[in-house]
Amino acid sequence: MEKKNRNILSVRDLQVQVRTKEGSSTLVQNINFDIKKGEILGLVGESGSGKTVTSMSVLQLHDRKSMDITGSITLHDRELNGLENKEMRKIRGKDIAFIMQNPMNAFTPVFTIGHQFIETIRSHTSLKNKQAKDLATDMMESVNLPDPDKLLKKYPFQLSGGMLQRVMIAMAACLKPSVIIADEPTTALDLHSQLLVLRLLDKIRSKYGTSILLISHDLGVISEMADNVIVMKQGRIVETANVYELFDNPQHEYTKKLLRTRPTLYSQKQPYTYML
């Protein structure tokens, strides 16, 4: 039982400061959270509240020359903060995968998707080119992309945003990472592709037991997906709660405002989505 409930990723007292000529300014502070195995942790907040800064410090993607990261970030009880870049590169993509908001910018336009996909696989495993290609094809099939062999030969700009986002999820999931950080994975997509992408994330979670840190400002995404939710404002966590509690009984003023201002389809009491 003890082992089952173990936290995969823990962040304690995280503080990120950026050094400027006029002195240092704090971007995020007092960030504490844990993610258990197979849990989806939602991270909500307005733009500029430090959501992305937090997720990037987990991956140690900040420039250490100008940024100070203090606190502890542990993955499977291993301290990540301050780890050498060489070590970090082994973890990124293998243990912690990252899904970015804009799939168009996440790929290099000069290489084919297959090239980039296989490069990711081969840099973390000892698979041969052929095997890596088979794995890539399998993964692409499992995210419902048609004709994976053909797709692997295409360049990123030849695919639509929704397809590219699914390719990115396939890439993130192919090495069965313990944590996926999804930074606004559906913001750039239309409604139907959003649904497909979210279904896919849930499938990966239930299939491999992957924990997901889901960053979004869309409360719809959070209410569909998250188990627990963190609400951030101006670089601090203002509320942490189970998703049901958060929607039924929001504590912080800001959370209440978020819930109040969202566009709604409710007519009087009954939600339209459930009248059907």
Partner: peptide, 22 residues
Amino acid sequence: KQLRDSILAEHPRFRTLTTKAN
């Protein structure tokens, strides 16, 4: 119908995508 089905739930009680929650 497809559009309607892709509207996300407004409350976790009405979620349809995922079933598991602690």
